[in-house]
Design a protein around this nucleic acid. Structure first.
Lengths: 217, 217
DNA sequence: GCCTATGAATAAGT
DNA sequence: ACTTATTCATAGGC
């Protein structure tokens, strides 16, 4: 089908013509409809699903379709009672989220973790005799003998290095509220622009909640 | 607009009639179209966006709309060059994901973590004198006094709880391929059913690489 | 899962 | 942001 093809033939299947238009125009609109309004728009055009080159058009599309996506997600969530979380990084790494992402991430990781646990690479969680075969961070800390503390210190050191390297690297970003479909709470986070508001509904992450026994003040 | 209203008048704006229908029926379908096909369907009905009570209908809707959502996400991703991850927990807690969720979670956590660092709840990372004002896991382990070890044990306990839930996801999760929009890789994960394949493109988290000084064997 | 009629999303233009 | 004409998604039925 070509673009210009269908434009010539237009058909109104439904009876109503202009549900909510300016009443002033209703009088003599029939006479010169074509002249006044030859073809206001070509309507929605078919587009190929491939990266949009033109920056402006791409941004518009991103914005519109993101809204549409979030709306769909909200509807799906309500209709089916499912929990949905969406994380979107725009091309320039601005992040937009939908739903209670933190909670869902936690749940996701938990699930995969549990999965790991019940079907470990080696074997784990066959706890028969004490803590043997259990990941060390799973063990009760109280069961650690005093003389093992030195080793723990080393383990913690490596842990710290790994964690810190992995997770904390650069700049500071904040969270900005977005237009909401009135159902869940999509949010936008920018990289370096301040904005106090951040409801951050739920979750605080792993290492966040507690400070060092030493660093407190 | 009522349901039955538009049903009487049907209009084909486009020229083609039946793009791909059974050729056998093309001969004399005109004569008794109404009898053979008085109204095959009522078409798409308007529905309220509220939880669907009927289980069957709810499941169908969940399935259909989830597909639609993932397709939209795939299109948005391609069109705008954005990265999109979706995590969905069905009502019975079956998880469906779209996109490279692991990578995006990592990126998300990274961003939020960084956020914390540069804008801490109390104040941190103003390190002037020694370790003061530094996140505890940042400190040199050697600088910890012996008498602080008890507190470290507690900290580690909490850390263990939090981390365990969150981070160790690899190895063990099975991923089942779903019908793909040919763009990204939506996946379904079930709770206890095996399936070797798991490309798991990317990410391993912090503590994974090393085992306990005690749990080794 | 496939089909159809209809509701909704959206590409362009303003 | 608003409008329109068109394409796309999908509710209900098989």
């Amino acid at each position: 089908m070509e673009v210009g093809e269908a434009s010539t033939i237009t058909c109104f299947p439904t009876t109503e013509q202009n549900p909510l238009q300016n009443p002033n125009l209703l009088v003599n609109q029939q006479t010169e409809t074509k002249l006044q309004n030859p073809k206001t728009t070509k309507g929605r055009q078919k587009i190929e699903i491939k990266e949009i080159k033109e920056v402006n058009r791409r941004q518009v599309t991103f914005s519109k379709r993101r809204s549409g996506l979030f709306k769909k997600a909200a509807e799906l969530s309500v209709l089916s009672g499912a929990q949905i979380g969406i994380v979107t990084f725009s091309r320039c790494d601005r992040i937009y989220t939908f739903g209670n992402v933190d909670t869902l991430i936690e749940k996701y990781l938990h699930k995969t973790t549990v999965m790991l646990r019940s079907h470990p690479g080696g074997e784990v969680a066959n706890g028969e005799e004490g803590d043997e075969g259990v990941m060390w961070w799973e063990r009760e800390v109280e069961s650690v003998a005093e003389e093992e503390m030195e080793e723990y210190k080393n383990a913690l050191s490596v842990l710290r290095d790994n964690l810190w390297t992995r997770i904390c690297e650069l700049g500071g970003d904040r969270t900005v509220e977005m237009n909401v479909p009135a159902l869940m709470n999509p949010t936008v986070m920018n990289d370096h622009r301040g904005h106090g508001g951040n409801d951050h509904g739920g979750l605080e992450f792993a290492m966040v909640p507690f400070m060092s026994p030493n660093a407190r003040q």
